[in-house]
Nucleic acid binder design. Structure first.
Lengths: 344, 344
DNA sequence: CTGTTAGCGCCTTCAT
DNA sequence: ATGAAGGCGCTAACAG
């Protein structure tokens, strides 16, 4: 590999001049600049990023940090998709993404204990997912690195975040069951308390329910998997026999709920309408196809990329919390018609 | 951030001694080593990875390179999962993974045109997916970086690869249709020619078919998506009206085939048995649940991690091609019984 | 406009 | 067992 020195020697100028020419800095005559560019091409010169980082103390690297179990999240490319959006957009600005998945222990030990966050390898962190402890986020932000949250938010802080409109999306889904299908007894199947997204979705459900003069019926279980959806639906059906519809806080739970209905010989949507949240990849292949709320994962990643680059490069950013709209995707599990046959 | 110098000054020794102590090199008395370690902890010292890389010319970074459309592959976390396995295992050896997704243009332009492959940012590349052009692979390997292939292989080269047993898996699937269910007219739905994995799966199908004294009936379409599976199945059903079973080279095509059957009022598996390949996450939620061949994606990533670290660190590695077994996952779409109800 | 000097933080001879 | 010196490849400050 040839170095800056090689190019300088080749052209017969100093290294400083080559550096200036290659970095589009002023102070080089058009002619020598030309000769330098040609020489660089000829010698197949590429600036060594390590050396550059050492002097500039910028790595043009962003860490995509998630809880290890989230990547891939049990069964769906939710976070991978965010990462892809991130990578795609960062690449345009010549930034790179590094994947960092953290165990529970590492998450509780905190950012100080992680070499990769301390050794100057990265300029910024994108912390993805509601299961990154607030303490971790705060201490990471205090460490001098630029920090962004995605699919998570810390109220009462200035840490910028990109989130889906969980509340609005869940309200829309619940409204749809009430208004388009006339349901009056609608359960909410949710996971553990404490995660921002779950709380927000619950709020959306409750607000739609209350606005229609109905009673909220919430069942909480400890996780948000297919299995726990199965369990939560059974609990709900036992507790509220007159229930005709269920809103699940995510698609995995919704799938579980549909399985639970099936195991009780209830037809979906005739006997029990079900809607989910996330619009994961296989929601459309569920039987019946799942009505759900879309979360624009790719967009979240893209936006996070722009925002973190702005922060790293010291640009002024106003918004500290960006909410992306989450639209209802109507399929068949809510009771709407849906042509079978060809894929959509 | 404190530097090596700071620690040295604090303890009252030279930087060289601190370096030796921290890197477990001989030539430091047990006592000073102790004092240095304590000082480092106290000052919250972390070696700066950039500076270290500059002197050692090692970055402890591996690039995970895929075609951009593969990540996430159309709808399933196949490559994300490989990447996760890679990351998980690399992390144990203090290596990091960077995600690089390449467009068609970048793939044809070749590795020389990609700064990230030329600027000394990484020690090695894991090239994932059959759609990385051979030329790209060869030139990457010639560039001095350590290279590994995953879910792809280049015959007649020494480039190490980790692949699933595509041939054996597809043979097993086809055998199952013949032996367990007595099918005699079995179609193969495949995508474009040229990709190693597709070719190998086709070979497995053909060998099973021939071993049973049957005739291969292959339908090739240009892609391997749900849509193209729909199309291929329709073509096959038109061409071979007596066909009672279909093997698809991947699960997406299998899902498409089941939809095609449905649109012709054929029941799966009664009128048309279908098996897929990959065991993607939603295969088990298909209706009926899809019988398919599992590909151990996590394991592929883990193994790739070990092998590339060995290569980077100059260890001797014998195998240039590692084949991981791919087992048949029997569900209902092949005609076997499968209890409905609770998730599996 | 161009060159010289210095230094980023670390590792590695070579001396002592 | 320890220290001094040099250099990895690049950028930045200061001269000219």
């Amino acid at each position: 590999m040839s170095s800056l020195q090689d190019v300088a020697a080749f052209v017969g100028v100093s290294a400083a001049t080559v550096s200036r020419a290659l970095n589009d800095k002023p102070g080089v005559s058009t002619e020598t600049r030309q000769r330098i560019l040609e020489a660089a091409r000829e010698l197949r010169y590429w600036p060594n990023s390590t050396a550059r980082s050492l002097t500039t103390s910028r790595t043009r690297t962003v860490l995509f940090v998630t809880h290890r179990h989230k990547f891939p999240p049990s069964e769906d490319p939710f976070y991978p998709q965010i990462m892809r959006g991130l990578e795609e957009t960062l690449a345009r600005d010549d930034y790179n993404v590094m994947l960092v998945t953290l165990t529970d222990e590492q998450l509780t030990a905190g950012p100080e204990a992680l070499p990769v966050l301390q050794d100057g390898r990265a300029d910024g962190l994108v912390l993805a997912g509601p299961d990154i402890p607030p303490g971790f986020v705060l201490r990471a932000a205090a460490s001098g690195l630029s920090v962004m949250l995605v699919d998570n938010a810390l109220r009462e802080t200035q840490i910028p975040a990109v989130v889906a409109d969980n509340e609005g999306g869940c309200r829309a889904a619940t409204d749809h069951l009430i208004e388009a299908h006339g349901h009056r007894v609608i359960g909410l199947l949710r996971g553990a308390e404490g995660w921002a997204t779950s709380e927000e979705r619950t709020t959306g459900y409750c607000s739609a329910i209350r606005a229609a003069g109905l009673t909220p019926r919430v069942v909480s279980v400890s996780e948000t998997t297919i299995e726990s959806g199965f369990e939560a639906a059974n609990q709900a059906l036992d507790a509220y026999p007159e229930m005709t519809a269920a809103v699940a806080v995510n698609d995995a739970m919704a799938i579980g709920a549909m399985r639970a209905a099936g195991s009780r010989n209830l037809r979906v949507p005739a006997d029990l309408a079900v809607v989910g949240f996330d619009n994961i990849s296989w929601a459309k292949f569920a039987e019946p196809p799942l009505t759900t709320v879309n979360v624009p994962t790719l967009e979240m990643g893209r936006l996070a990329a722009r925002l973190i680059v702005d922060r790293i490069e010291g640009e002024f950013t106003v918004a500290s919390r960006t909410i992306l709209t989450s639209d209802l995707v109507v399929r068949a599990s809510c009771g709407c018609e849906k042509a079978a046959g060809a894929p959509d």
